[in-house]
Write a protein that binds this DNA or RNA. Structure first.
Length: 387
DNA sequence: TGAGATGATTCTTG
DNA sequence: CAAGAATCATCTCA
C-alpha cells in the first residue's frame, strides 16, 4: 500500500503529465484537445483509490445492480474486463469489482497510466532488488556438487559409482574375496542412495517448474490490471528458482552425509585387518632378504609380488615400508646389545623374537652387504654393520 | 590377558 | 611423490 501511495503521489505531483512521461502521446494529445486531461487522470486515480481502499466485505455489501447498467449483471462478459478478473474465477468476484475493473481497462488514459506506473515501479522497488540479483555461484553448492560427482551419486551412472566403490574396496584391503564382498555391498548401498537422490531431485524440479508456470500465469493475468512488466516476471521466476535451489541444496547436503556415513563404515572395516597368509609372508621375505642391498622393489616387482601373494600393490608397499623400518630398528637394537650367549639362544624369550628371526634370516644371506636410504637424505648412505 | 607382531594410516621430509 | 618414522588398531600366542 505504501508503494501504491508513493506511485500515486508521484503521479499527482507530475500534474498534467508531460508528453514524454506518458507512454501514449497520441492519447494524451487527444485528451488535451478535449480539454480535460487532468480530470481524466483524477477520475482514474479516484477509481483506483476506491478499489484498493475498499475491503471485500464492503464491496460485497454494496448492491451492484443499483450502480451499474444491467448489461454488467451477466456472467458472460465478452470484453477484456472479464479477463482482468482472472478468467473463470472472475465470475466469483463481486460484480462491482468487475465493473470498475472493466471501466478502468477501457479508459482512454489506461495505457499511458499503466506505462508510467511500470516505469515508476521499475525505478523504485525493483532497482533496489536488482542489486542483489546477480549472486555469484554458491561455493557450498559447488562443493556439494563436486562431492556428489566424485562419489558417483550424480553424473553418469557407470563411471563414478563403480570407480568410487572400487577405490573404497581397494582401501578396505584384506583378501580379494573379502574385498569383493565389501565392494558389492558398498556399490549396492551407493546405488540406493543414488536412486533416492535422483527421485527426489526429479520431484523438486517438477514442483519448481509447476510452481513457476503457475506464478507466471498469475502475474501475466494480473499484469492487465496492475503494473507488472515482463522484467518483473522474470525476476519473480529467478526468486522462485533460488528458493527451490536452496531446497535442492538441503537434499544434496543430506545425500553427502549419507555417502560420508557409508564410506566411514567401510573405512572402519579396513581397520579390522587380517594377517597375510604364511605363503605370502614367505614370498615377501624371500624378496626382501634376497634384495637386502636395495630392498626397494620397482613397480613391476611390486605388481608381481602382489599377484603372487594375492594382495594389492599398496599392501606390498606397506609391507616393505614396515619391513625396512622394523628391520633397521631390530638391527640397531642388536648392535647396542651384547651378543647373545648360548644360553640366550636357548632361551630366546629374553630377547625380542624379531631380532632372532632377523638373525636367523640374515644368516641365510651372510654375504649381503646392504645400504639404504637415510631418513635425513634421499641418497643411500647409512651402512649397517654385518652381524 | 598382556606383550609382541603386524598391517594400515598419518605426518614429515627432501 | 616416495620413503621414513611414529602411531594406531588388531591379531596371535604363551
Amino acid at each position: 500500500m505504501d508503494e501504491q501511495t508513493r506511485m500515486l503521489t508521484g503521479l499527482v505531483g507530475i500534474g498534467g503529465l508531460s508528453q514524454t512521461d506518458v507512454g501514449d502521446p497520441d492519447s494524451v494529445r487527444k485528451q488535451q484537445s478535449l480539454g480535460q486531461p487532468q480530470q481524466d487522470i483524477g477520475d482514474i486515480l479516484q477509481q483506483i483509490m476506491a478499489i484498493t481502499d475498499e475491503s471485500l466485505d464492503e464491496a460485497q455489501a454494496r448492491c451492484w445492480p443499483e450502480e451499474a447498467p444491467a448489461r454488467w449483471a451477466g456472467a458472460d462478459d465478452p470484453t477484456e474486463g472479464g479477463g482482468a478478473g482472472g478468467g473463470a474465477s472472475g465470475a466469483a468476484l463481486p460484480l462491482n469489482f468487475q465493473y470498475r475493473k472493466h471501466a478502468l481497462n477501457c479508459h482512454r488514459m489506461k495505457p499511458a497510466l499503466f506505462s508510467v506506473l511500470c516505469e515508476i515501479k521499475e525505478k523504485t522497488v525493483l532497482s533496489i532488488r536488482g542489486v542483489q540479483e546477480e549472486d555469484p555461484p554458491d561455493p557450498q553448492i559447488m562443493r556439494l556438487d563436486n562431492m556428489l560427482l566424485a562419489e558417483g551419486v550424480s553424473g553418469p551412472e557407470k563411471g563414478g559409482g563403480s570407480a568410487a566403490a572400487a577405490a573404497a574396496a581397494a582401501a578396505a584391503g584384506g583378501s580379494p574375496n573379502d574385498g569383493s564382498i565389501e565392494h558389492s555391498d558398498y556399490r549396492a548401498k551407493l546405488a540406493q542412495i543414488r536412486q533416492i537422490y535422483h527421485a527426489e531431485l526429479e520431484k523438486y524440479e517438477q514442483a519448481c517448474s509447476e510452481f513457476t508456470n503457475h506464478v507466471m500465469n498469475l502475474l501475466r493475468e494480473q499484469s492487465r490490471t496492475r503494473p507488472i512488466s515482463p522484467k518483473e516476471i522474470e525476476r519473480m521466476v529467478a526468486i522462485i528458482h533460488r528458493k527451490f535451489s536452496s531446497i535442492q541444496m538441503q537434499l544434496k547436503q543430506s545425500t553427502c552425509e549419507a555417502v560420508m556415513i557409508l564410506r566411514s563404515r567401510f573405512l572402519d572395516a579396513r581397520r579390522k585387518r587380517r594377517n597375510f597368509n604364511k605363503q605370502a609372508t614367505e614370498v615377501l621375505n624371500e624378496y626382501f632378504y634376497s634384495h637386502l642391498s636395495n630392498p626397494y622393489p620397482s613397480e613391476e616387482a611390486k605388481e608381481e609380488l602382489a599377484k603372487k601373494c594375492a594382495i594389492t600393490v599398496s599392501q606390498v608397499s606397506n609391507w616393505f615400508g614396515n619391513k625396512r623400518i622394523r628391520y633397521k630398528k631390530n638391527i640397531a637394537k642388536l648392535t647396542l646389545r651384547p651378543r647373545p650367549t648360548q644360553a640366550d639362544t636357548l632361551h630366546p624369550a629374553t630377547h625380542p623374537t624379531a631380532d632372532y628371526e632377523e638373525l636367523s634370516e640374515r644368516a641365510l644371506y651372510p654375504h649381503t652387504a646392504w645400504t639404504w636410504q637415510d631418513s635425513s637424505s634421499s641418497s643411500p648412505c647409512t651402512e649397517y654393520p654385518l652381524l
